[in-house]
Simulated assay, not measured.
Amino acid sequence: MASADPFDSALDLLRRLNPKDTSRNVSLLCQIAPSLTEDLLESVDVPLSVKRCSKTGRDFLCCDYNRDGDSWRSPWSNEFEPPIEDGEAVMSSERVRKMEVKANDAFDVYRELYFEGGISSVYLWDVDDGFAGCVLLKKSVSPGGKGKAASWDSIHVFEALDRARTAHYKLTSTVILNLGTEAEALGSMDLSGNMVRQIEQDMPVEDDGSHVANIGRMVEDMEYKMRNLLQEVYFGKAKDIVDDLRSIPSIKETEKDKATHREMISKMGR
């Protein structure tokens, strides 16, 4: 019998653990099996961490796409925090960096409009026949200033392949939602999970500014759909279960309504 692949076993274990502890569990697995560190960091989506750009004083989000060893690149200054001393880091081309600056400005406006706070970061890099990148959005709140915090983390990874007057976009979006509260009257509650969706689309392109607009439109549409799906999963399903366990009207009233309904259907049939 062939032995199980360590990486597959690690992923299988993470699927069975509480989603709100994913960051901690990934860190522990990296300590147990250092050889899996790179693969785990590239494959497992975890809540985004925040760093401060020392040059601009602005916060930015950290993920595997702006990481080089133990340093992370700021989208605002295009420099690593902390600085990389041993050798030059791989940087994107001048054209892609200009698009990255425009995209960060655009999504900073998007963040303020839709999240009314939080942090956004966009990172782009060169690929054959085009470019790729990721759009990161994060907002955390502490209801009433006490108890557990709730957070929304969205990670949109895309690839744009240039074609004649059009571009082919591949977008993979992940939303990590953590809802927690702790109060003396309500007790403790945790709702945590993530959702992943993918889409491919061809869109017209006139110049590099069109890429930023197209990506923004795709991310906006995807976040809207995923937000509605999460609301249905988290709250719609919970409401259905509660209604099945304990109805608001009395059983006598419910049976009376059902009897009236059956009588109306019967008369309509005759």
Rank of each mutant, 00 (worst) to 15 (best):
K256V: 02
D202R: 04
G133T: 02
F107R: 03
R73D: 04
R73Y: 09
D12S: 14
R111N: 09
T260P: 00
G147L: 05
V50D: 10
P82E: 15
M222D: 11
S192E: 10
S92G: 07
K138Y: 14
A213L: 08
P83F: 14
K225H: 11
S49K: 14
A183F: 10
S9Q: 13
E182P: 01
S250N: 08
D59M: 05
L136W: 06
M189F: 13
V122W: 01
Y110W: 15
A106Y: 15
A2P: 15
E38K: 11
S120H: 09
E94K: 07
A167R: 02
V46R: 01
D128R: 06
W125G: 07
S154F: 04
D108M: 04
A132T: 06
A185S: 14
S43T: 04
T56L: 11
K139Q: 07
A132E: 05
D202T: 03
K20T: 12
A160M: 02
S71T: 14
Y114R: 09
K237M: 01
L137C: 06
L29W: 03
I215R: 02
V212Y: 02
D202W: 01
A213C: 04
F131E: 00
R73A: 14
W76E: 15
S23Y: 06
V127Q: 08
S188Y: 04
S140E: 15
P82I: 14
V175M: 09
F107C: 03
A149P: 13
H156G: 02
M91G: 05
I176K: 14
H156P: 00
A10N: 02
P47T: 02
E81I: 11
M264I: 15
A213E: 13
Q231T: 10
R270N: 05
